[in-house]
């Protein structure tokens, strides 16, 4: 089954839409659902023009395609457990919150908290992702615990904060403090970043480019070869237990 949601023009285009109901499983029972625009609850078809093709018996057989100005549609794919969501353009905050299965593919950029506290499944973002990509919620000790988030552009600050499991792959660069407080899982950054893995207690991170303002509390262990490249291996963060592994192509300290 393929559900196509095309955003209708809005009188107040900057009002965010909260649409955690856009999850493949929900469309097994039809499209009679609601979304929120500011403090108003509206039927789905007041915000989207909806078309459905084919049938499905399980959520895994449902594909949701989102078109139009989707940049301010928040919480799409929240608690998703199966199926597929394809966003042709940009997507708003909290896409894929707590998802445990299925796939979300974003053609454009993703706003903050992409894949927040994700447990399984996969998210592919062809553009950039903003701050807190694959991170935890405020005050939580655990962020993402499973699944894969792959961003082909760059990510903002605090990517993979509190990472506890799963894999985060960033093909571009990361902002400040990627992998902060991480205690499990794998973070791979193909570009540069600043202050990676601050206060990490476990897990593994690779920075193929340069780690700027490298923290002084990572102990240099030696070098390794991986994927035809030489990495400097550190353990840290020794400001605490320091059992994480950080591999960087190059690094610069703030002397």
């Amino acid at each position: 089954m393929r559900v196509t949601l095309t955003v209708r023009p809005r009188e107040k285009p900057f009002l965010p839409i909260e649409a955690e109901t856009i999850v493949p499983r929900n469309f097994l029972d039809g499209t009679d659902t609601t979304v929120w625009r500011g403090n108003r609850e509206l039927p789905l078809d007041a915000v989207f023009s909806v078309s459905v093709e084919g049938n499905a018996e399980t959520a895994a057989e449902v594909e949701v395609v989102m078109r139009g100005d989707t940049a301010l549609i928040k919480r799409v794919g929240e608690y998703m457990d199966a199926g597929r969501i394809v966003v042709e353009g940009d997507i708003g905050m909290h896409c894929g919150n707590f998802m445990s299965g299925g796939t979300i593919e974003i053609g454009g950029n993703a706003d903050g908290w992409l894949g927040r506290e994700m447990r399984g499944g996969s998210i592919i973002c062809r553009g950039d992702a903003a701050d807190y990509c694959a991170s935890g919620y405020r005050g939580d000790k655990k962020g993402m615990t499973g699944g894969v988030v792959e961003v082909f552009g760059s990510v903002g600050d605090f990517a993979a904060e509190h990472l506890a499991g799963g894999t985060v792959i960033v093909h571009g660069s990361a902002g400040d403090m990627a992998g902060a407080e991480m205690h499990g899982g794998t973070l791979i950054i193909y570009g540069d970043c600043t202050r990676p893995c601050a206060n990490m207690t476990g897990g593994t991170a690779f920075v193929h480019g340069t780690a700027y303002d490298m923290l002084p509390t990572f102990r240099r262990v030696g070098t390794i070869r991986r994927e035809g490249r030489t990495f400097i291996q550190f353990t840290g963060d020794i400001a605490n237990r320091g059992k994480g592994n950080l591999f960087v192509g190059d690094c610069r300290y703030m002397d």
């Binding site: 202050r195 303002d213 002084p216 509390t217 102990r219 020794i238 400001a239 605490n240 703030m254």
Partner: peptide
């Protein structure tokens, strides 16, 4: 600030050997 605070934490924990000659000035 963050780097200096981290360095102080490491020193208080007795891990002084990793601290470089200068941290953020």
């Amino acid at each position: 600030d963050y780097a200096v605070l981290s360095a102080l934490r490491a020193i208080v924990r007795g891990k002084t050997d990793t601290i470089p000659r200068s941290v953020s000035g």
